[in-house]
Design a protein around this nucleic acid. Structure first.
Lengths: 172, 172
DNA sequence: AATATTTGATATGGTTCATAACAATTATCA
DNA sequence: TGATAATTGTTATGAACCATATCAAATATT
């Protein structure tokens, strides 16, 4: 299940430094994962970290985190909504959403507008700059990030994976 | 870590309060996810949170987090290893692993023993109690947690999902 | 009108994650 | 051999994330 011993071991010049008789990657020294590799939660977490890492790399020129990108996407798709609505659908608690919005607003990517109907709530809107950054981010994500994932998994597997994850997130 | 909402909600009688004409889940008011649902990272994170949530529920009698469970599993499968080795294979930074071990050791689930070869390192061992707790945890995870996942996804899908996640975690 | 609820916000504490630094020990190598 | 470098566990520390209680203003409910 681990990395198969490549044939490069055969040609490797004898340089026994430590106990590195076998050490394929920069990992540690070949521990047995055991039942850990069959634990869905474990694999999910590891995969998620890798995917987020790649996302950050791909979208680094725009300085957007996955969470920020998801906010911009949602604002674009759902105009006229307030903070509570956006935060809720993203699973972000309202108190924690305040600082997130402050950051986006300070970069002039979105703005809070007092609603005329309900003067408690803030209607969230993308600024022109916000729309421009989102467009560029979408392109980066599609061509660099998702493209890579699809290439690694294969298109049909990628779709199946999405379907299963959605089902997991849906049914408890 | 608080008490999860009990299943008493299940018997909740129809109490239409607001504009809940249509609202499948306890969500918000039907926002459009848009391209968000096609973002693998987003779905991964949401699914991972749900799965961990369920793990905590299932193994609650033993008061074990997913991370703690993974440490016990690894200690059982790999005797004679030190802190650095265990931490590395789990992707935990050594400084952060110290407190984790303190917690497990204070509960008498594992112990640090000074190595005779290298008096810097601590050889980690499961205690008898640790082995007993691990055995019970394994049973709970298998019969409650994973069983549920397999039931939701179907056995072959579950296997395919694991395979894809492992591949993702492997190839950058 | 009196009371309750909602909205955005602040304060706060917990948990996770990452980095620098340190003492003790061991490895390297000039 | 002895000087220097590297490793191990540890502490300290700060950033980022997550959760709860509470508040004033505004609105809804009765």
């Amino acid at each position: 299940m681990t990395v198969p011993k490549s044939a490069s071991d055969a040609i490797r010049p004898a340089r026994p430094s430590r106990k590195d008789i076998v050490d394929p990657a920069g990992d540690d020294s070949m521990l047995q994962l055991g039942e850990l590799s069959g634990l869905l939660g474990y694999s999910l977490k590891r995969a998620q970290l890798k995917v987020f890492e790649d996302f950050l790399r791909c979208v680094a020129p725009l300085q957007l985190t996955p969470a920020q990108f998801s906010v911009l996407l949602l604002l674009d798709k759902n105009p006229g909504r307030n903070q509570t609505e956006i935060a809720n659908t993203l699973g972000i608690l309202r108190p924690n959403f305040v600082a997130m919005l402050d950051a986006l607003e300070s970069r002039d990517l979105c703005a809070r507008m007092r609603s005329t109907n309900d003067r408690r709530s803030h209607i969230l809107v993308l600024t022109d700059k916000g729309r421009a950054v989102l467009a560029r981010a979408k392109k980066l994500v599609a061509t660099k990030h998702e493209a890579r994932l699809i290439e690694v998994l294969g298109p049909s597997n990628h779709a199946a994976l999405l379907e299963m994850l959605a089902k997991l997130a849906r049914e408890y």
